[in-house]
């Protein structure tokens, strides 16, 4: 399985990426994950203004193959959600790295140290067997 993950992002163990822009980060889902569950038909976005904790559910989603939820890679205040995804969930399949799900003002920047870089995340994800 030939999978790639963009280098400039950080990742958790639950199919989500984080893009750091100072105090505020963008959070979205990875392409390998979008590919495995196929076309998204519905996204239940998190609520703008709410607090989110790392590990808590931040998004519930429905695709043709799977319905479930994902855990947030960060803690902080949700300052913006990407409402376009509500109208067109399949944007996530088209370009999951462009269409972030939420913007979070970090509570504690040190928390980012617990996330993986692209190489680590890829190894974690890898289908390649030694």
């Amino acid at each position: 399985m030939d999978e790639e993950l963009p280098k400039g992002l950080l990742y958790n163990d639950n199919h989500s990426w984080v893009k750091v822009n100072g105090d505020v980060v963008e959070v979205g889902i990875t392409k390998p994950f979008a590919n495995s569950v196929k076309e998204f038909v519905y996204i239940e976005l998190p609520e703008q203004g709410k607090e989110i904790k790392k590990g808590e559910t931040y998004v519930s989603m429905e695709s043709v193959k799977w319905s479930g939820h994902l855990e947030s890679p960060v803690s902080g205040e949700i300052v913006e959600v990407n409402n376009a995804l509500f109208d067109e969930p399949s944007l996530l399949n088209q370009d999951p790295y462009k269409h972030w799900i939420m913007r979070v003002k970090l509570l504690d920047k040190d928390e980012l140290n617990g996330l993986m870089d692209a190489d680590q995340a890829l190894a974690n994800l890898s289908c390649k067997l030694g």
């Binding site: 399985m1 495995s36 569950v37 289908c127 067997l129």
Partner: peptide, 20 residues
């Protein structure tokens, strides 16, 4: 499922896991 994929590769086959 990956253990099964491994086993098939041991048998000489180009096996892969297909979600789900």
């Amino acid at each position: 499922c990956l253990p099964i994929v491994y086993a098939l590769r041991l048998l000489g086959l180009k096996a892969e896991f297909a979600p789900i």
